[in-house]
Design a protein around this nucleic acid. Structure first.
Lengths: 342, 342
DNA sequence: TTGTAGGCGTTATCAA
DNA sequence: TTGATAACGCCTACAA
């Protein structure tokens, strides 16, 4: 029931608590023998230090937190793995904190910063439309990683690492155009959706324009709004609609791979074929999209690179080598089996 | 820089810290007016209590932790969502804790129990081969949810909620047999893999036996070992092997949907068709498997039910309505497009 | 190399 | 209804 504390260990060992503390924290200036003896007792009695007490007392830690909205998004999986690896390599402690869809990530961050005495924070994915005042409450360095930024936030020290959503979405839509597609539908988020939905839509518009294709509002299919708007189901519904309305298009650009796959399935169920009847392009470059049948033509975000760079920037900020860096990576056009040349 | 503490708030309000404490904790016996006044100040100065201090001092909390190994597994996504919903509904606090692949979940649990003064713990997925002594260090109720159990652990109070892996895997392999398949390959984990790999393999064996099909060791394809053995890639590799070796089978049972999809893709790339050339069955019933083309024939684990029941059991344990319950749910055979009748 | 004592930010137990 | 004050378990000067 009652769990053992540092005092108990000290008593058992016949030393003072500070000596025990030194032993468990690998402090210098402690006799090897006493240390060994203490460690043995600790092992025997299974003493585990209380983290709350440690965090409370410690002036600083090596804790780095990754805050992530939409944990179930497979896009994040490889990034998380990379973060963990890198953070451990640097001898920091990795804390993964999930943020609920309708929770304010900054609030969570502020709370966690206090609780864990964070050294730095990474915000992963999602949007970011927070006021300056709020962001200023964050007193440790933070980096936005693959966060669709609609605009820079003035007067706040922070960094960001991501691809340029607009540019990349332009890239893939332009690719569709160059293959001869002139009627390209888009499955996109509703107007009120900030961030990636908007940015990727802008890239689409621009690409059409540069290819002298007139924008046809009838070819814009909106995802249902709601928390699962970026789901397969949501793409599926949009796909069904496209087919049933006999949308006048030869290609479809879905703003994420997941949505593309949902749409693909819908088209398949309606008896059409991809890419023969409809070409479909996605965005993200999930591992899954290589294994889907047909594999997706998509924009691959260099997730590993982004993760590594995110931490590099964060550590640079922590070590005061830099104040603020905004790094943009190129996406890679992956040519899969879901788009045909016409 | 320096963040505001309860003392500061007390000073600003001209009251004592205990009064502030009462205000933030909704304690009875505090004047409504003073409370309002304090809350206003708190809002204005953005005071946020330090969780470490709270956890340290508080005798008990309403924290429930979900520990999960293999966070990236899409199988867990809907379960996590359900857990969160239910836990919040009961006015408890939901703590999601990721456990690294080569970390000991019990160690993590013990540490977290101290740090957060947990009320209860749910272990999600993975295997479980811990000694009794170790488990006894857990002093709060815990439930194993969808944890493949090779055997009951004697003399320890704990509960479990899951499907019977052996029975369900029997069910789907038997289904294959009944459709006329006599040569059924299996993609399974290596022998040394505990838990689900083993259990699902046993179901396969039993089903073959009951259908008077002789077991053919050549039709057992092992996943590469390693942390990503349950990945698409891993299934893909096995699938390639099956085709290239011209395995003498009409059907393949993959022990998870993810693996099945990887194998499916491999077969597709080699120019064969599913289910025309090979029938493939999976296990888990992921949402994704309904959207894959072809959709998978699989065993769907009733994840929502399992999640709800897991918490019900946990709360019953917390409230001492029960000591230990072992609940088994039935899986559901989902008939997809990946298996044909021969 | 070790021990003593103060304090991290809270909550809980008193007494007022 | 409020206020002192003692913990919670640990780390860290400082002293020995």
């Amino acid at each position: 029931m009652e769990s053992i504390t540092i005092k108990d260990v000290a008593k058992i060992c016949g030393v003072s608590v500070s000596t025990v503390s030194r032993a468990i924290n690998n402090n210098p200036g402690i006799n090897e023998e006493t240390k060994n003896m203490i460690m043995q007792v600790i092992k025997k009695y299974d003493y585990i230090p209380n983290n709350s007490a440690r965090n409370l007392k410690r002036s600083e830690t090596n804790n780095i937190a990754i805050l992530i909205k939409g944990l179930n998004n497979p896009f994040f999986s490889p990034m998380i793995a990379e973060f963990e690896k890198e953070i451990k390599k640097k001898k920091y402690t990795f804390i993964l904190q999930r943020v609920d869809e309708n929770q304010d990530e900054i609030e969570v961050a502020i709370e966690l910063e206090k609780e864990k005495r964070l050294k730095g924070i990474v915000f992963l994915g999602g949007y970011f439309s927070h006021s300056r005042e709020k962001l200023e409450k964050l007193t440790v360095p933070f980096v936005l990683s693959t966060v669709g930024m609609s605009e820079m936030i003035e007067g706040v020290k922070y960094s960001s690492v991501a691809v340029d959503d607009k540019k990349e979405s332009y890239k893939i839509v332009d690719y569709l155009c160059k293959l001869g597609h002139k009627k390209i539908a888009i499955i996109s988020a509703t107007d009120d959706d900030e961030s990636i939905g908007k940015l990727r839509f802008e890239g689409y518009m621009r690409a059409l324009c540069d290819n002298n294709i007139e924008f046809n509002p009838d070819l814009v299919y909106y995802l249902q709004s709601g928390n699962d708007r970026y789901s397969m189901r949501s793409g599926y519904i949009a796909g069904k609609k496209i087919v049933k309305e006999k949308a006048d298009c030869t290609a479809i650009f879905a703003i994420t791979d997941i949505i593309a796959m949902g749409a693909l399935r819908a088209i398949y169920e309606e008896g059409y074929k991809v890419p023969e009847d409809y070409s479909i392009a996605g965005y993200d470059g999930l591992e899954l999209s290589r294994y889907y049948i047909p594999s997706l033509t998509t924009i691959r975000q260099p997730v590993e690179k982004i993760a590594v760079e995110t931490l590099k920037v964060l550590f640079d900020m922590i070590n005061e080598k830099t104040d603020s860096v905004h790094k943009v990576f190129d996406g890679e056009l992956i040519i899969g089996e879901s788009v045909k040349n016409i």
